[in-house]
Amino acid sequence: MSKDKRQLAPFIHTEKNAPYIYMTLLASLVPCTVCGIFYYGIRAIVLILFCMLAFTLSDNFCVRVTRRRSGDYFDLSSLVEGLLLALMLPPNTTLISALVAVLFASVITKQVFGGAGSNIINPACSGRLFIELVSPSWMQGFSYREDNSWFSVISLVVQGEPAKYKDYSNFTFSELITGNYPGLIGTACLACIVIGGLFLTLKGTMRLYSPVSYLITLISFYPISMLIETRTFTFDGFIVYLLSSGAVFVAVFLLGDLTTMPSRFTAGVFAGVVCGILTMATKPFLSPMVSLLAPVLAVNFLSFVLDFFSKTLSRRKVRSREVDLS
């Protein structure tokens, strides 16, 4: 290899560098953030800013402690993951539980594995799941927006109001699409999520294999799961589940992730299907959030192996799609 100072080929580089990818992700989350702030007011702003700040500080601290090279730019991945985590929280999460989630996500799932991009599992997802498992009572607040628009500072620190909203079936289709119903900060508005997803797809920072196959799997396995759970199946309930459970958010922003999901078509589709089946299989037995997020983590673990196998598959792949044989 050359010891020369000259730059080596290639001399042009795609615009899609790491900051670009992270900024695109940030931008794609903007609509969901707007939605959260619109419906949950200052409380949502405080939570979002807090999570992003805490994530950045924690990451920077870890990098400093481990003296790891973090690249020559400001690590935007912290901001992205902080925002992602905040959007998956209920609006009346306390700052303490949010902090626990951030620390778990940042230190355990991100920095221990080697910092930005080296994490095997999705930090935001694992952080969210962690607090859900550690203390479900912290996470119960799905309360209606009018109670959450304004807040007393103490309620941010000490306790969320555990006013759980059990049944979403009363909501109309238009409400579910526009996010006008109580839910997590950022996962409620389907339209916003879809816009984010479209933006990511246009910008090329999302792989559609997994999200699409995941959603298709969910759709096809939902009836079975429902029959196991309640012995009944209604089409309405099905639509409501799809729109209100945050599955689309998970599909777009967790399964569309570049870092933690398989990079090849076969593996991506396989991972999406596995994730969907796991979600549906665990749905009757676990709490909604756990059954939604745990499969994502499982698939994250899988993806490394999957990538390995799919490579062998695709090495044999015929490049016929390069040619127009007509």
Binding site: N17, R68, G71, T260, R264, K311, K317
Partner: peptide, 19 residues
């Protein structure tokens, strides 16, 4: 070009003509 550690995005595997 910003130099950062690998972020495991898999874009290189995706684009490699030799897979």
């Amino acid at each position: 070009v910003p130099r950062t550690p690998c972020i495991h995005c898999g874009l290189c595997s995706e684009c490699c003509p030799m897979n």
